[in-house]
């Protein structure tokens, strides 16, 4: 696992306005407009519905599998949700990521591989708060890089991650048709 240099200035990531968060294993607080906490089994139907509303694909078993992995392997796997402070049953967004080591020769880093925000909850900082929250978890475990992958033509997430300071990394994704 990478260790952060003691001399390197640490960039402080602050929660977006309105958010209150706790670590992946901690209890949430509820002082802001929304709360970020680790996902629970009861969140999966809402996560599945939220994602299906974006991708038109219901992937319940996939999210269930990711949740089980995040709960079984506490270190380095994160599945966080944002819920309304006024109505804790209302899911506003979710983020899933993990620390991966030496994939394609890459030193350990945090990967975000799913982020979704309910259409009615956009523009209030939910996505930013979720990304900040998982970044804090990665940093807590010594990571100094966070990566994700976005479809080139999917403008909204591309613009979001760019606005959060993410830029093209040193890898290029390649693919081919298998016939």
């Amino acid at each position: 696992m990478q260790k952060r240099s003691a001399k390197k200035p640490r960039r402080r990531v602050r929660p977006a306005a309105g958010a209150t968060t706790r670590g992946a294993g901690g209890a949430p607080t509820s002082a802001g407009r929304f709360t970020i906490r680790p996902a629970r089994p009861g969140d999966i139907p809402a996560v599945t519905a939220l994602d299906a509303g974006i991708t038109s694909l219901a992937k319940g078993p996939h999210w269930q599998d990711l949740l089980e992995r995040s709960r079984a392997r506490q270190t380095g796997h994160f599945f966080l949700v944002a819920t309304s402070s006024a109505n804790p049953d209302a899911l506003l967004g979710f983020i899933v990521g993990e620390i991966r080591a030496w994939e394609f020769g890459s030193a350990p880093c945090g990967w975000v591989y799913a982020l979704g925000v309910a259409s009615g909850a956009r523009g209030i900082g939910v996505g930013e708060a979720l990304l900040d929250a998982i970044a804090r978890e990665f940093r807590r475990l010594g990571m100094t890089k966070m990566r994700t992958m976005v479809a080139k033509l999917n403008a909204l997430p591309m613009m979001f991650f760019r606005a959060e300071g993410m830029m093209a990394g040193p890898y290029i994704q390649l693919e081919k048709n298998l016939e």
């Binding site: 080139k152 033509l153 403008a155 591309m158 760019r162 606005a163 093209a168």
Partner: peptide
């Protein structure tokens, strides 16, 4: 894709 994802802000 790069230029189209970077807003002025």
């Amino acid at each position: 894709a790069t230029l189209g994802s970077i807003t002025l802000a």
